[in-house]
Amino acid sequence: MAMQEPTFFILTALAEQPLHGYGVIRAVTELSGGRITLRAGTLYAALDRLTEEGLLVVDREEAVDGRLRRYYRLTDDGGTALSAEVDRMRANAAMAAARLRNIRLAFGPTS
């Protein structure tokens, strides 16, 4: 089953290093080239679900004057799920590229 795009970017954001909530939002915006801006309610629904599925765990907490930052980390299962998704996307992309090449060979301008 294909992963939803926000999920994909959240896992990608956490693949490099543990991040807290706002860190994830910023990283996802950056990784998606500004296309996806997560809002807090959506982000935490996704974090809850991914934690429950065992793809994420809480890495550590930082409490500074009434603020609470909780850092999330990818689990081994999370890494596996993300690389499976990467393989799937790569296979799809390669397949599409191959077909496009075939079309160009058949109908494209002769060089």
């Binding site: 706002y22 939002i25 807090a40 009434g66 603020r67 909780r70």
Partner: peptide, 13 residues
Amino acid sequence: ARGDEIVTTLLEG
């Protein structure tokens, strides 16, 4: 369980 954390995220953003 999550209120402080979510508010922190919202305020940081």
